[in-house]
Structure formats: C-alpha cells, structure tokens
C-alpha cells in the first residue's frame, strides 16, 4: 500500500522535519545544559524551554494565518515576524 495515500510533498515533509529537528535540538540542549526550574516571564506564567517552543510554534501559526487572511500569500514577511516572535519568546517569556 505504501504511503501514497498520505500525499506527501517536499514542503510539508520539510515542515515536519523542522518540527522534529526542533524537538531533537531541545532534547540535546536540555541534556547538555539543563534548563532548571521554570522561569516566570512577561506573560506572568512559569515556562520551561519546552513550553517556550510550544508558544513559539503556536504563535507562529497564528502569525502566518493572520498574514494570509489580512495581507497576502507571500510568506517571507510572516516568516521574519515568526522568527522575531520565537526569539522574543525564548528571551522574555
């Protein structure tokens, strides 16, 4: 039967590889340099590195959706915003 029913494409495969790479990087980072106790950030909630990755990815998804709904389907703009968002989340949240 194979995996043809899953209708894989290179861009979607790259997306999942990116998510998997994020998880592996975070695991290796945690093993090498433990993050310690959760941190109290600007949102007033305690977050670990894993929480921050989740917030970054979820926030990025909404950044892309908002861009596609309000601006255009050219996605370099939201990609730049999402990268800045991810940096700010890991730095301050």
């Amino acid at each position: 039967m194979g995996l043809s029913w899953m209708a894989w494409t290179w861009p979607t495969a790259a997306f999942f590889v990116f998510v998997a790479a994020c998880l592996i990087t975070l695991t290796v980072w945690e093993l090498k340099v433990p993050g310690g106790d959760p941190r109290h950030g600007v949102f007033g909630i305690d977050t670990t590195r894993g929480d921050r990755l989740f917030i970054s990815l979820l926030g990025s998804a909404f950044i892309f959706l908002a861009w596609m709904g309000l601006v255009s389907t050219l996605l370099w703009g939201p990609l730049a915003i999402a990268l800045v968002w991810g940096f700010l989340v890991f730095r301050y949240v």
């Binding site: 029913w5 899953m6 894989w8 494409t9 979607t12 997306f15």
Partner: peptide
C-alpha cells in the same frame, strides 16, 4: 494530522 497537513496544500 500529517495527512491533513499534506491535503491542505493540494
């Protein structure tokens, strides 16, 4: 879920 993501761009 992966399949749904694949379908969403085709």
């Amino acid at each position: 879920l992966m399949t749904v993501v694949n379908y969403s761009v085709q």
